[in-house]
Simulated assay, not measured.
Amino acid sequence: MMKLWTPLALPLATLALLAGCSSQPSSQQGVTAIPTTASTASTAQPSAKVQAFMMRGMVTWGHESYSIQPCNSQKQYWIVFPPSDHNEIREIAPYSYEPMYGEVIGMLEPAPEDGFAADYDGRFMVKQTNLLSAEMLGGCQMSAHYTNAFGMEPSWDLKIQKDTVIFSQMGMSDQQQAITQRQSTSGKQVYQGKDFRLILTKGHCNDTMSSSLYGWQSNLTWKGKTFKGCATLGATDVTANWVGHYKTTADATNTPGLTTTLTLLADHSAITRYEYDSNEPALEEQGLWQQVSEDSVKVMMTSHQGRRLLSERTYTLENTAKGPRLIARDEVINGNEYSLGEGGLQLQRQPE
């Protein structure tokens, strides 16, 4: 079945779908919507799978209100923890909807159409809790930490910084060793050097000295001595290299008279803006972005001019003489796939 293509494939296809959902006349004068019939669109292939990432923010856990507000952001995502985490979270969650600092690994989805989660900017599905703390209320003001193992009785701490580990004990000088071997499997990480071996195992771990929940248990052998405790993975979002502004350029095969700008923000929200050379008002879509692979990113738009919409584009990264460029060949709108033209939609990364 042929895919739709038009010089204004988007936002015209988007406008057509939205027009069918409203009895109000279109506010875009002079723009002719394209009928979205079976003859102009093909059924979309399964959506590209995204990679889980680390999100830091303030978590609220209470009756009918479960959310995370990413650090340095005004966005709020409904948060869904695995059922196996619920009892542990209840033990440390404060009353009266007071926030906790959190580091969680997972993926974003569009918010549902109804229910308590419908009023949020998206839904974050937690695969694993890295850290939840009712005491670290200033966690968002701190830099993202390295992978860290620690314990009590006796008090000890081990930080992993690139290819080096730093071991600390109360009343003793810090010691360092080089990491010579690393192993990572599902639910287990192993670091080894000349006189140490650290094993991190996925599992709940509580610090008895604070109201904190950690996602890893640690077992350290250091120069013949064994130490046990908790651990957290490094809290950096390793997909943050996509953050930036991308814009159509005159040398690419884009639609004449239309400038498209894509903004990917650190809180994983996304904004697509369409500006015309004519006097027509600009159009704006908002949504989410997530990495698919090191050279591709999925952008999901969830609203168009404030009205609900579900559309997806998967952009591929290409390095050009003018710098990184994103190229999307197709778009999926409400389950139908549309071509974005022979050359696709091409967006050049803009200088910071």
Score class of each variant (00 low, 15 high):
residue 35 P to C: 08
residue 35 P to N: 06
residue 36 T to V: 15
residue 36 T to D: 04
residue 37 T to M: 07
residue 37 T to N: 08
residue 37 T to K: 09
residue 37 T to R: 12
residue 38 A to L: 11
residue 38 A to S: 12
residue 39 S to K: 15
residue 41 A to N: 11
residue 41 A to K: 09
residue 41 A to L: 14
residue 41 A to W: 07
residue 42 S to G: 10
residue 42 S to N: 04
residue 44 A to E: 11
residue 44 A to L: 10
residue 45 Q to D: 08
residue 49 K to N: 10
residue 52 A to Y: 08
residue 53 F to S: 11
residue 54 M to A: 13
residue 54 M to D: 11
residue 55 M to N: 08
residue 57 G to A: 07
residue 57 G to N: 03
residue 61 W to T: 04
residue 61 W to M: 13
residue 62 G to C: 07
residue 65 S to H: 12
residue 66 Y to W: 14
residue 66 Y to M: 14
residue 67 S to W: 13
residue 67 S to F: 12
residue 68 I to E: 01
residue 68 I to C: 07
residue 68 I to Y: 03
residue 71 C to F: 09
residue 72 N to M: 08
residue 72 N to A: 14
residue 74 Q to A: 12
residue 74 Q to R: 05
residue 75 K to G: 07
residue 77 Y to H: 05
residue 77 Y to L: 02
residue 77 Y to W: 06
residue 78 W to R: 00
residue 78 W to E: 00
residue 79 I to E: 00
residue 80 V to A: 14
residue 84 S to H: 10
residue 86 H to Q: 14
residue 88 E to A: 14
residue 89 I to F: 09
residue 91 E to Q: 11
residue 92 I to D: 01
residue 93 A to G: 04
residue 96 S to P: 00
residue 96 S to E: 11
residue 98 E to V: 03
residue 98 E to Y: 09
residue 98 E to L: 12
residue 99 P to F: 06
residue 100 M to L: 06
residue 100 M to S: 03
residue 100 M to A: 02
residue 101 Y to N: 05
residue 102 G to W: 07
residue 102 G to K: 06
residue 102 G to R: 04
residue 102 G to T: 04
residue 103 E to H: 00
residue 103 E to V: 15
residue 105 I to D: 04
residue 106 G to C: 07
residue 106 G to M: 03
residue 107 M to K: 13
residue 108 L to C: 07
residue 108 L to N: 07
residue 109 E to A: 11
residue 111 A to Y: 02
residue 114 D to A: 15
residue 114 D to Y: 03
residue 114 D to M: 05
residue 114 D to N: 11
residue 115 G to Y: 01
residue 115 G to M: 08
residue 117 A to D: 13
residue 118 A to P: 05
residue 118 A to R: 14
residue 119 D to Y: 10
residue 119 D to W: 05
residue 119 D to V: 15
residue 119 D to G: 04
residue 120 Y to G: 05
residue 120 Y to T: 12
residue 121 D to R: 07
residue 121 D to Y: 06
residue 121 D to G: 02
residue 124 F to G: 08
residue 125 M to T: 03
residue 126 V to N: 09
residue 127 K to R: 09
residue 127 K to A: 09
residue 128 Q to W: 15
residue 129 T to N: 12
residue 130 N to V: 12
residue 130 N to M: 05
residue 130 N to S: 13
residue 131 L to Q: 09
residue 131 L to M: 11
residue 133 S to R: 02
residue 133 S to F: 00
residue 134 A to G: 03
residue 135 E to A: 14
residue 135 E to I: 03
residue 136 M to T: 04
residue 137 L to A: 08
residue 141 Q to I: 09
residue 141 Q to V: 09
residue 142 M to W: 05
residue 142 M to N: 10
residue 144 A to P: 03
residue 144 A to C: 10
residue 145 H to A: 10
residue 147 T to L: 14
residue 148 N to C: 06
residue 149 A to R: 00
residue 151 G to N: 04
residue 151 G to E: 02
residue 152 M to Y: 03
residue 153 E to F: 09
residue 153 E to R: 10
residue 155 S to D: 14
residue 155 S to A: 09
residue 156 W to G: 06
residue 156 W to I: 13
residue 158 L to H: 01
residue 158 L to P: 01
residue 158 L to S: 01
residue 161 Q to Y: 05
residue 161 Q to A: 14
residue 162 K to N: 12
residue 163 D to A: 14
residue 163 D to R: 15
residue 164 T to I: 11
residue 164 T to P: 01
residue 166 I to E: 13
residue 167 F to K: 00
residue 167 F to P: 01
residue 167 F to H: 05
residue 168 S to T: 15
residue 168 S to D: 10
residue 168 S to H: 15
